[in-house]
């Protein structure tokens, strides 16, 4: 008897509360702009803040409201701007758009004190290390957001051009040569 009434009362309670919450959720629904969700899904999502907004979602909201240009995201570069243009149905002239020079952070091992401040702020967990150990930057994961540069107490983190390795080396584009030019 106890068991039955316990099961019945808890199940009823759960059902009634769930039903009430469902009704409340329907009436108190927060309308969000679906375009913001789509823009945010295209973004890198590392919340690096290079655009000047606190994160990717505020930046997506600003783009959707027309308060920010679609070229606002530096890590995304021109490729992301083209995707935004296609999604929003606006034309974009990228002939004047300068691809920002891609720099990544690098630890100078002479001056690193192993203070761990840099990898606490890294949005992509690209810095490895431990307390009082010299840190290192995983070049593939660094998005060049420069957050670590600001917190480094010894200025041992600096931005460098990424090293050319076998993994990221690309064949140079051929130089445009006029037809029939002497070899």
């Amino acid at each position: 008897m106890y068991v039955l009434s316990a099961i019945a009362s808890l199940a009823t309670l759960g059902l009634v509360l769930g039903w009430l919450l469902a009704i409340a959720a329907k009436y108190l629904k927060v309308e969000s702009n679906p375009i913001v969700e789509e823009l945010e899904a295209l973004m890198p999502g590392s919340q690096c803040g290079q655009c000047g907004f606190p994160g990717c979602r505020p930046a997506a909201q600003a783009i959707a409201n027309g308060e920010a240009p679609i070229t606002v995201c530096p890590p995304g570069g021109s490729a992301l701007a083209e995707q935004f243009a296609a999604l929003l149905g606006v034309s974009i002239d990228l002939s004047n758009f300068e691809e920002p020079e891609f720099l990544i952070a690098k630890v100078s091992e002479d001056t690193c004190t192993g203070c761990t401040r840099c990898f606490k702020v890294c949005p992509t967990d690209a810095i490895v290390g431990a307390a009082k150990q010299i840190h290192a930057v995983v070049a593939d994961a660094c998005t060049g957001c420069q957050k670590c540069i600001a917190v480094c107490p010894t200025e041992c983190l600096q931005m460098h051009k990424p090293e050319v390795t076998l993994r990221n080396w690309r064949w140079q584009k051929p130089l445009p040569e006029p037809v029939g030019a002497p070899a």
């Binding site: 106890y2 009434s5 316990a6 009362s9 808890l10 309670l13 759960g14 509360l17 769930g18 009430l20 919450l21 409340a24 959720a25 108190l28 629904k29 927060v30």
Partner: peptide
Amino acid sequence: LDIGFLRVLSFILVIAAVVQFTELVIHK
């Protein structure tokens, strides 16, 4: 129903629902 042994369980259930409701209200 004489099922006092379910007190903590059912109270937590109700509190969780009330908190969810509060969250909805504040979000709105």
